[in-house]
């Protein structure tokens, strides 16, 4: 049997969850023996060329590009996992969710005291992704199959979850593994 294929992406996240994957230390060597990484910032593969077994999503959806990426992952991954608080509930970026997007943009690019008066404009290049009205948890946009909470989820949780997913076994969550901070 060929090795299970994993893809990862960071949407509106800080890459902390990806860092946590690296935190499994030397077990990453075991992991590489066990699985094949496909589209992921870890190996810099940018496009899907095959269907993956597991997709790991860090970050929620804060702009149109995040939505596109997430939908692409959903299409190309058999099992899709929300990894970390931002993917699960929007996290830090979602602190803007109670504020109208217009006010956010104006505060960030026009009124904020640290903005250079010469640069006072809201970015509007058509190439730029469009900001959403709020940050959406991934499972409100596409179907998500599993959730790994934490900020970031501990290396231990990620390791156990990956092993469980790859081996198709139920995930045994001990008390110390489920943490939101």
């Amino acid at each position: 049997m060929s090795k299970p294929i994993i893809a990862t992406a960071s949407l509106a996240g800080c890459f902390g969850c990806h860092m946590s994957v690296l935190d499994i230390d030397d077990r990453i060597l075991t992991l590489i023996d066990l699985v094949e990484f496909h589209k992921s910032p870890i190996d810099d593969i940018k496009t899907f060329s095959k269907i993956c077994d597991v997709g790991l999503i860090e970050g929620g959806c804060c702009n149109s590009e995040n939505v596109e990426t997430l939908r692409e992952f959903r299409k190309n991954c058999k099992v899709l996992v929300s990894v970390g608080e931002c993917a699960i509930m929007g996290g830090l970026p979602a602190m803007r969710n109670g504020i109208p997007v217009k006010d956010c943009l104006e505060e960030a690019y026009l009124h904020c005291p640290t903005v250079d008066p010469a640069d006072r404009m809201i970015p509007n290049d058509p190439e730029l992704p469009i900001i959403l009205d709020k940050v959406y948890p991934c499972h409100e946009v596409v179907k998500i199959d599993a959730f790994l909470p934490g900020c970031p989820p501990s290396a231990e949780l990620i390791w156990k979850a990956l092993v469980a997913l790859v081996e198709g076994k139920p995930l045994d969550l001990t008390y110390d593994l489920v943490k939101f901070d």
Binding site: M89, F147, Y175
Partner: peptide, 14 residues
Amino acid sequence: YRYQMLVPRFPYQF
């Protein structure tokens, strides 16, 4: 934590 809530079954209200 005790209930091992991974994600609430309800949508976030924000």
